[in-house]
């Protein structure tokens, strides 16, 4: 039984969702965030003029720690609920500047037949490239295709989420307001939330246990 006595206990329990295997949605989104923010190719392709100085120095060297491979600029500014990379498909604010977006979602709605211990998780990336900046001039590649390919390279057939990830959909479309879109979906056959990590306790398998 989880013992929560203080607000901090409650918050710490909720914060653990980003790391425990209990909830894949939150954990996978956190993994995606870290993966995308450590990918200078992707951040370059997002073409945010204000943040480009966080990727390269004046001599066009990538600002990277050569030992750890960590990017040294303020690249976390590319991510957030109002930034280029968002962990949800929701862009409510008025668009008054040319910006490109990557919105990702994690969900599932099907299980393998006769097997409720596993599920088919789908990770969807919606790439929105503004029509006024639709081609990356230095590579000559349409920006939505370029970003999608960088993401494909990072995730397809990788084990970044634990289980192997496969690309199952890659489709183009367009929005009414002049964004070029590519939607790519990765699928993972992973465990259907059968672990349960009690507060300050161990992670256990809970699918054959009776819980009230």
């Amino acid at each position: 039984m989880t013992e929560l006595k203080t607000k901090d206990d409650l918050l710490n329990k909720l914060r653990s969702y980003t790391e425990t295997t209990d909830d894949d949605n939150i954990r996978y989104k956190n993994i995606i965030k870290k993966s995308l923010l450590n990918c200078p190719e992707l951040l370059y392709a997002l073409h945010n003029k204000e943040l480009e100085s966080e990727l390269f120095d004046e001599d066009n060297n990538i600002l990277i720690d050569e030992e750890t491979g960590e990017l040294l600029g303020e690249v976390d500014r590319y991510f957030g609920e109002n930034s280029n990379i968002r962990p949800h498909l929701f862009i409510p604010e008025s668009q008054v500047e040319i910006q490109h977006y990557i919105c990702y979602q994690v969900m599932f709605d099907s299980l393998p037949k006769y097997n409720n211990v596993q599920k088919y998780t789908e990770i969807t990336f919606n790439i929105f490239a503004h029509g006024e900046d639709r081609t990356d001039k230095l590579t000559g590649i349409p920006r939505h295709d370029l970003i999608a390919s960088i993401i494909r390279e990072k995730f397809n057939w990788s084990n970044i989420f634990g289980m192997q990830t496969h690309l199952i959909t890659s489709k183009e479309s367009i929005t009414d307001s002049n964004y070029l879109v590519r939607t790519i979906i990765f699928q993972i056959t992973d465990i259907n939330g059968i672990s349960n990590t009690s507060y300050n306790g161990q992670t256990m398998i809970n699918n054959y246990k009776v819980r009230w």
Binding site: N82, S83, E93, V96
Partner: peptide, 10 residues
């Protein structure tokens, strides 16, 4: 004054 503030929020 602008549509969004510096944090790109409305």
């Amino acid at each position: 004054f602008w549509y969004n503030d510096e944090n790109n929020k409305t």
